[in-house]
Design a protein around this nucleic acid. Structure first.
Lengths: 107, 107
DNA sequence: TTATCACATTAGCAATCACTAATATGAGTG
DNA sequence: CACTCATATTAGTGATTGCTAATGTGATAA
């Protein structure tokens, strides 16, 4: 894999590795929501959520759509939805092992 | 999703969001390799690679198998292999969008 | 047009993470 | 046993990331 692709890949994958972003994705997995709805749903801070939304959108994972004074965010396409489902599926099989990861790098 | 599961999920997903770990996974995607082979292949530092291997193993993504004085690492199962393939597949479709992610959070 | 609402952006700080260097462990070999 | 080789672990440091608070922007409503 060439260098540039590697960095794009890492950037993309890193977007999934954050608690707030995972919560956002679960929140809009089945239907698009406004920023305020997301903020309320995951009990977050508006500025913080906006930053994470920008990250997810920049990584091609979600899409925003302005409607009047609201912005609706949803998953970018069906493949992302399937990827999220795959995460859950794979995870359900290795959950016990993940639990014992104690290394200080990314633990 | 309950809190504990969320944290396990994030831990698992974060393991994929690092350049060195992605390189390791690509390196052992098709066949298991010893630590030294991995170190040589991705031109890394032994200590550093060992730490990342511990992370990946702790997260249930790879497995280690001692054979004499060598330790062979490989993907934990076929599902992980498929997950890696899915990453590449999804990524190939949104590559242009990922490229323009400029947010300082995880950019 | 001014005020308000929804959202985005910026700056600065605190926490986390990955790297290097040094050292430890544990298996094979002479 | 002493030595070497392969790998793991630890400590310390620099870099990256995510958070909060403050401010900016752009659309609607009065």
């Amino acid at each position: 894999m060439i260098q540039e692709n590697l960095e794009l890949k890492v950037k993309f994958l890193r977007a999934f590795g954050d608690k707030t972003r995972v919560q956002i994705l679960e929140c809009i997995k089945y239907e698009e929501k406004t920023v305020s709805q997301i903020v309320e749903s995951i009990e977050g801070n508006q500025s913080n959520i906006s930053q994470h939304l920008a990250c997810l959108r920049g990584c091609g994972i979600i899409e925003g759509r302005q409607e009047g004074k609201y912005v609706y965010y949803g998953l970018r396409n069906q493949q992302i939805k399937e990827l999220l489902d795959t995460f859950d599926h794979v995870l359900s099989q290795i959950e016990n092992n993940v639990a014992c990861c104690e290394n200080h790098i990314s633990s």
